[in-house]
Amino acid sequence: MDNQGQNMDALVIGAGPAGLMAAEALADAGQAVTVAEAKPSVARKLLMAGKSGLNVTKDEPAQTFATRFDADWLAPILSSFGPDQVRAFCEGLGQPVFTGSSGRVFPVAMKGSPLLRAWLARLAAKGVEVKTRWRWTGFEGAALTFETPEGAQVLRPHVTVLALGGASWPRLGSDAAWVPWLRAKGVLVTDFAPANMGFRMDWSVHMARHFGQPVKGACLIAGTRRERGEFVISERGLEGGGIYAISRDLRLGAPLALDLFPDLSLADLQARLGRSRPGETAANRLRKLGLAPAAVALVMEVALPLPADLAPLLKHLPIQHAGPRPLAEAISSAGGIARDSLTDDLELRALPGIFVAGEMLDWEAPTGGYLLTASWATGLHAGRAAARHLQSARIQN
């Protein structure tokens, strides 16, 4: 291969949801597209997420949906590909969807593999070529270098879409190895931090029998924010949807507390406690209030010695955690390529002709279908913009 590298029309690096969506957008615009994926198979994080049911989006109005993200600039991108478009996309692949009681939307098949198989078949029919075990290793001048089964490759595509993911679940491919290469080219990348993660607890031995047990019906309090949700007591700490919903606030330093009786006023709870028999143990009093054994154990773990008046404690139980679980365990990551380094088309200002999509970008959202929808939406946006860039360059030449 010559030193100038192999020319090609459009290259997408990363075959997750964002990358595959970008590839389809480019193919639909009539471009020849190559997708380079470092792993032996594609969309590993999508398939892993689908093991417990693939939550593709959230059934709520578009304006409400956009407020779930910490990045206002995503709103116009999500308006073009939001919950309604996600449902249509899945159904177009022969995967009907349904909305659960929480508003979360799932394929009827639940798993991610039927949707992915249908999507890959459609991409192949459109001429998209997927190369697995092609690992991007950085830049050689303006060209892109790869380690492949055929040896080192140097590519010089006319347009490139980067969709390499953030920094969570690195074993599935999102290892953030690209950060120093882009920073060296003048791209501002905010340091990654865990998002939608659990929090460590230094449990006593008495908590072991409650590992894996949920605490239901509580309101989680993070500073001034209150969220109803379920969470799980695990060997590693506190995990689950309720914790994930406030994980950003906790990561940024908000204190954690629980209202174990959110449907009762302080006075009503005090009245119930007042009906306890004299001399009754605190544990029995808590159980008779209807708290599950795991919740009783949590109160005894974090609040001994208990006060005589239990009601204020049960309405605001302080939880001293030991910080977030590691980034590698997080469902998603905060941080990434800063908005100031991007045009409205998600093109890198420092590297014209290179576009970015998915969790490489600096945005954060809770679980519940938001992460996947935004990955698809930014992939579509970047892919369409890359196609326009390529068409404009051809006209000028």
Rank of each mutant, 00 (worst) to 15 (best):
G379V: 01
T34N: 04
I319K: 01
A118D: 11
P114T: 10
G274P: 04
T34H: 11
F146Y: 06
M8D: 08
H316Y: 08
M1F: 08
A38H: 04
W376Y: 15
L327M: 14
A330N: 07
M21S: 13
E359G: 10
V356L: 00
R226K: 13
F192M: 05
A377G: 12
L164S: 03
A23D: 08
L144M: 06
L220I: 10
H321S: 04
V205N: 15
S204G: 15
I77Q: 00
L390I: 03
A295K: 02
P305Q: 03
A267C: 00
H316I: 02
E91Y: 10
Y244D: 03
G229S: 09
A295S: 14
P76E: 04
A121W: 02
L256V: 11
A385D: 03
S392A: 15
L93F: 13
L317D: 10
L264S: 13
A382I: 03
G166I: 01
P293I: 06
H210L: 06
R183G: 09
R171C: 00
R394S: 07
L346A: 04
I77Y: 04
R285M: 06
G5E: 01
S247V: 07
T378W: 03
Q396W: 13
G100A: 14
A121T: 08
A385T: 05
P107V: 05
C219L: 12
A62S: 11
G5I: 01
D268M: 11
D263M: 10
A218V: 09
L304E: 14
Q391Y: 04
P214Y: 05
S234E: 12
D202A: 15
Q270K: 13
L74G: 02
F261E: 03
P17D: 13
F89W: 15
G242Q: 10
K131D: 01
G92R: 13
A195R: 08
Q85R: 14
D72G: 10
I319A: 02
P305K: 04
L256H: 13
R200W: 08
N7G: 08
A350F: 08
A195C: 11
L144F: 11
D59H: 14
E359W: 02
R200K: 15
K39W: 05
A177T: 09
F355V: 06
L269G: 06
M360N: 02
D344Y: 07
A357L: 06
S392L: 13
L327H: 08
A71T: 14
F65L: 02
V161W: 00
V302N: 02
A193Q: 14
A71S: 14
